[in-house]
Design a protein around this nucleic acid. Structure first.
Length: 111
DNA sequence: CGGGTGACAACGT
DNA sequence: AACGTTGCCACCC
């Protein structure tokens, strides 16, 4: 697999992150069929300019942590974009939307 | 070949 | 919760 093919696979995986959700670098790497290459994801994102039209802001560090230095322009830009999509921000990280816990009734009666 | 460098991750303290 | 270590892997001298 060439470096170019890897980059293509990664960009595809990033484009596949749905609006209002986010995925970690490691997760993106796995989805791209490149387990263990989290760092490569960051590299590809960095070298893909805005013209690539990637939802780069939906890629976070492990557990929703923002990879840029807290308070930096990039970090604020990413956070505001995520918040604009309805994701809750807490400090320099974002939290995954809580799964709507189905009630016991719902489970039993398929409500 | 060898060492340094990351938009990383998992663990330990 | 905030760091420090280690493991990792592609790139670039």
């Amino acid at each position: 697999m060439t470096a170019r093919e890897r980059a293509t696979a990664i960009r595809k995986a990033v484009r596949g992150i749905k609006r209002g959700s986010f995925a970690s670098y490691g997760e993106v790497a796995r989805r791209a069929g490149l387990p263990g290459r989290a760092r490569l994801v960051g590299q590809v994102l960095r070298e893909s300019g805005d013209e690539a039209r990637l939802p780069w802001h939906r890629v976070t560090g492990a557990g929703g942590r923002i990879a840029f230095p807290a308070g930096s322009a990039s970090a604020r830009r990413q956070l505001s974009r995520l918040v604009r999509e309805g994701i809750e921000a807490r400090g320099n990280r974002v939290v995954a939307p809580r799964k709507p816990a189905r009630s016991l009734d719902a489970l039993l009666w398929k409500m």
